[in-house]
């Protein structure tokens, strides 16, 4: 499911299309809302989100970034956070929270702050209506997907910012190529590590790094992408 989503995301060539893909994530992830908001190193901003235009306008008019606990907790930071860990007790914050819920944001949320190169920062959020138990099991089950997809959206946004006329190429280091090549030849991890004279942990980290650069959901997907891009010679 997410794998085919990532394939679509890869084909995006404009910010308009990226916006459509962020909106499409709402169904893919089965949540009420998805928000992606990026601030680059020169302070330029880009946002794609599913909130109602009325709520967005209200938020901007009231300058709610001042008190929004999600912004306070996530700005320039990098650990993902369930909104239940935030402090909503202050009276202004309570009112803001009530308004947000009335505007259909949902009573639950999970935010992933993203740190890109050269001080780039982005925030990715999913929100919805659920009991605490339901939400806990949802986030527990999907946290890995949420972390991955949020970073892949960010990588795409960064790529578009650099300009689409540049041919998108992933460059892997020789060691990453070696590791993926071994897996493509159906070696298991232990055999691959042994052949490359490295430990299995080292192999895992090299594969993980390559997987992330290739925007792949898992190892199999990474090998397939590397093969289709002609990065591996078998």
């Amino acid at each position: 499911m997410l794998e085919s989503y990532i394939e679509q995301l890869q084909r995006v060539e404009t910010l308009g299309e990226l916006n459509d893909q962020v909106v499409a994530l709402r169904d893919t992830l089965d949540v009420e809302h998805v928000v992606y908001h990026s601030v680059n190193s020169t302070g330029e901003q880009y946002a794609a989100l599913t909130y109602s235009p009325e709520w967005v306008q209200r938020y901007l008019d009231e300058d709610y970034t001042r008190i929004d606990p999600v912004v306070q907790a996530c700005y320039r930071r990098f650990h993902p956070i369930d909104w239940k860990r935030l402090d909503w007790t202050n009276k202004n914050v309570r009112n803001f929270h009530g308004e947000a819920i009335d505007s259909g944001i949902g009573n639950q949320g999970f935010s992933v702050p993203i740190r890109g190169p050269s001080g780039q920062f982005a925030l990715f959020t999913v929100s919805g209506n659920a009991s605490d138990d339901k939400w806990a099991s949802y986030t527990q089950e999907h946290v890995r997907d949420l972390l991955l997809v949020s970073h892949f959206v960010n990588q795409k946004a960064l790529e578009l910012e650099r300009g689409t006329d540049q041919v998108q190429t992933v460059s892997l280091s020789p060691r990453e190529t070696d590791a993926l090549t071994m897996l493509a030849m159906s070696y298991n991890r232990a055999q691959a590590a042994d052949s490359l004279s490295i430990s299995e942990h080292t192999l895992r980290v090299y594969i993980e790094s390559a997987r992330f650069k290739l925007t792949a959901m898992n190892t199999t997907h990474a090998v397939a992408r590397a093969l289709s891009q002609g990065l591996l010679i078998i």
């Binding site: 993203i114 972390l147 991955l148 949020s150 970073h151 280091s173 020789p174 060691r175 990453e176 490295i198 980290v205 090299y206 993980e208 790094s209 997987r211 992330f212 650069k213």
Partner: peptide
């Protein structure tokens, strides 16, 4: 080994 280590999980 020249590998730039980048991942949301590291």
């Amino acid at each position: 080994d020249g590998v730039e280590i980048k991942s949301p999980f590291i």
